[in-house]
């Protein structure tokens, strides 16, 4: 085990915006515990320049955390420019870290963790 495994990646501030995603909502009709729905839910779309600056690659795992909790997600490169904003669909993953306020500031860092299943997130 190298020393790098003990060093945490730096964390960056990101504003979370909950947005609808037709692929995720369609997958929900096949079952909210289906792999397709889970994969479509446990992801965050990030700005290309932010990803470059934060050394996050498309498809890699990231940890998103706030005072309310943390989740491991798959990072996706957005086709559009939205610096400092991470787009997530509504699901148990995004709701796990949100507060009751309209603005959702969070921190993001590279992760070596695995995405938890929905049952694991809800504690069932």
């Amino acid at each position: 085990m190298g020393i790098s495994s003990f060093i945490q990646s730096p964390a960056y501030e990101v504003m979370i915006l909950i947005v609808p995603d037709i692929f995720q909502s369609s997958a929900g009709y096949a079952g909210k515990f289906s792999e397709a729905y889970q994969n479509a839910s446990a992801q965050i779309y990030l700005d290309h320049e932010d990803m470059k600056e934060w050394s996050i690659k498309d498809g890699s795992k990231v940890e998103l955390f706030t005072d309310f909790g943390e989740v491991v997600l798959t990072a996706r490169e957005s086709e559009e420019e939205h610096r400092g904003i991470g787009l997530m669909p509504p699901s148990v993953y995004s709701m796990r870290i949100l507060s009751l306020d309209n603005l959702h500031p969070a921190k993001i860092r590279r992760s070596k963790g695995e995405v938890a299943g929905i049952r694991e997130i809800i504690g069932k």
Partner: peptide, 10 residues
């Protein structure tokens, strides 16, 4: 499905 669309503190 409030678990999927209400914040965790709620």
């Amino acid at each position: 499905d409030p678990l999927s669309d209400l914040p965790f503190p709620v």
